[in-house]
């Protein structure tokens, strides 16, 4: 029987690779995952922030961020973002 992989173990495997983070609001982030903690606060590098507006996506580039885990709704390993 295959051993079970816990959700946070899956995220741990994503460290060093790209990840797509979707927030509860109309906001998304794509970046390289450097690390995270038990609250899924995340350290991301070379980040693109996407904010959905009526005219499309507004993007912002950020070198390194600590993203508060409180408003994260979904993580997509290897994801390339909404565009």
């Amino acid at each position: 029987m295959a051993s079970q992989l816990l959700p946070l173990e899956l995220i741990d495997k994503c460290i060093g690779s790209k990840i797509w983070v979707l927030m509860k609001s109309e906001r998304e982030f794509v970046g390289t995952l450097s690390g995270f903690d038990d609250y899924v606060n995340m350290v991301l590098e070379n980040v693109t922030e996407f904010e959905r507006t009526t005219e499309g996506y507004a993007t912002t580039q950020l070198k390194q961020i600590l993203l508060n885990g409180n408003n994260i709704s979904m993580l997509v390993p290897g994801g390339d973002g909404p565009q």
Binding site: I15, G16, S34, G35, F36, D37, N41, L66
Partner: peptide
């Protein structure tokens, strides 16, 4: 898995590194 090549940088590590620096 323990000795991966890229260094892990947890939220605590990050915060320790940026105290006293300009932030947004």
């Amino acid at each position: 898995m323990a000795d991966t090549v890229q260094p892990k940088k947890t939220p605590s590590d990050f915060l320790g590194a940026i105290i006293g620096h300009p932030v947004l």
